[in-house]
Amino acid sequence: MSGLGSGATVYDARSLPQDDNVNPYSFCVALDGEWFVQKGKMIAYYGRIKFEALGVGALDRLVTANFNSPLYIQDWIVAQGKGQLLLADRGFDVNSYDLEVGNLTIRAANLLAFQPGLDLKQSIVPGFVTLIGTGKFVAASNGAVHFVEPPIRVDPEALLGWADCPTPCHHFDTKYMRGALGMARRLTGLGGASGEEHQYDFVGTGTVLMQSSEISIDPNLIPAQTAQQNQPPGAQNIPGLPNLPGRLGRLLQ
């Protein structure tokens, strides 16, 4: 293998890294069995691998067991077989993480692939999914990932995910809107906003994952997410009434 400065390294099926990064921007899965993969993130593969859309019958067993999110089912496929599977996402930094009987919540658009040992469920925070169990997963980020510990407040766009700590709450800071000057600012719109009035507030113990940029990977990839759509079917937003899921919500309509 050639080193730095002597051109690109040439890999074949045997010399590709096994379950490791090929370079900072692509990851090689040594597939033997099944992996969940986000649509369109496969860039190449060696071996005999079949890609099947979710929810087409043959894979219903896997879906009911591990993929617990009707919202994202259209964005995911299952790679089945044996071989080397290369994953990448538009030149973003790619990293793999291991969970051991753990839980980690991550922005849905940033999750590229995960092992069926993990269960995927929708987080109650819109746009995020939670992985529970034991296994490996691969995620992309705009810039390197930085791990921090609570208490911390993170820009919603720069947040990649969190593990082991309580679900964050919103933090709003509009102190400068108070007082006479603040009133003038609010009325005239002069002075603008800092764009940093809203953060996710993390407390407790755990780990928070951030990316090095406040531009999230692809807002279009997150399915149209409103609080309403993130509710179980049946619940509707009724002005003046609290949102109640399921049957109770329907009764109140």
Binding site: I152, V154, Y176, G191, G192, S194, E196, M210, S212, E214
Partner: peptide, 17 residues
């Protein structure tokens, strides 16, 4: 504006022209 990613402690961000 918009360059803040995260913070600890009590920090406020005020737009200034």
């Amino acid at each position: 504006r918009g360059a803040m990613l995260a913070y600890r402690g009590e920090v406020s961000f005020t737009p200034t022209s």
